[in-house]
Amino acid sequence: MNIIDIALAEFAEMKAMEADAASDYAEEAEREFLKAARSCADRTLAPAAADLDWQYVPADALPEQVEEARAVLVPGRPEYLRYRVEHSDDTGVISLDLVEPGQADRISPVTSLSRLGQLLTPAPNTAHGPGEEQAEQQGPLAGVEEVLQRAARVAALARQLLAEHPDAGLVADTVSVFGHQSGNSSAELHLSAEGMEALRQIAAAIEAEVNVWASNGHGTVLEHGTATSTVDGIAVHVRAYEPMPAGRAAVWLAQQDQPAAEASDGGEN
Rank of each mutant, 00 (worst) to 15 (best):
G129E: 05
A193W: 06
E136G: 06
M196S: 04
A204N: 10
E145D: 14
H180R: 11
M196P: 00
T228P: 01
G179A: 02
A227K: 06
T228F: 00
E164S: 08
E209N: 14
F178K: 12
H128C: 07
F178W: 13
N184F: 05
H128M: 10
M196W: 00
A163M: 03
G139R: 04
P122N: 13
E223N: 04
A193N: 08
G183R: 04
Q138R: 07
H224Q: 01
S182N: 04
G169W: 02
A187R: 01
E209G: 15
E164M: 06
Q160K: 11
V212W: 05
A158M: 09
P140Y: 03
L141C: 03
E136V: 10
V221Q: 02
S229E: 07
M196C: 03
V175C: 02
G195Y: 04
V144H: 10
V147H: 02
D167N: 09
N216P: 00
L148I: 14
A135E: 11
V210A: 10
V154P: 03
V175S: 01
I206L: 04
A204I: 00
P140Q: 02
F178G: 08
H190R: 15
S186Q: 03
L191W: 12
V177L: 01
G183M: 03
T226W: 01
A135G: 15
T230D: 09
P140V: 08
G129L: 07
G131M: 06
L161Q: 05
G219Q: 01
I206H: 06
N211T: 15
T126M: 10
A163S: 14
A123Y: 09
V171A: 11
G143H: 00
L170C: 04
S182W: 03
L162H: 01
H190M: 14
G139Q: 07
V221N: 04
H180G: 02
V171E: 12
L148E: 14
N216F: 02
S215V: 07
G225C: 06
N184A: 14
A135L: 12
V210P: 06
L120V: 08
G129T: 02
W213E: 06
S182T: 09
G219A: 02
R200D: 15
L119Q: 09
L189I: 12
A204Q: 09
L189D: 10
A156K: 07
R153P: 00
L199A: 10
Q137M: 09
A168W: 03
A127R: 10
R150V: 12
L162Y: 00
V154F: 06
V210G: 08
G195R: 00
P124K: 10
E223V: 13
D173C: 07
G169I: 05
H218E: 13
E132T: 01
Q181R: 12
E223Y: 00
A123K: 14
L119C: 03
H128F: 11
L222Y: 13
T228C: 05
G217P: 00
A208D: 08
R150G: 02
T226A: 09
I202F: 08
A203P: 03
L191K: 10
R153V: 04
E146C: 14
N211I: 14
A142D: 05
G217H: 13
T174C: 06
S192T: 15
L222T: 07
V210W: 09
A155H: 11
L157I: 07
L148D: 11
L119K: 02
A156F: 05
P140K: 02
Q134R: 12
L120F: 08
V221I: 15
A198D: 10
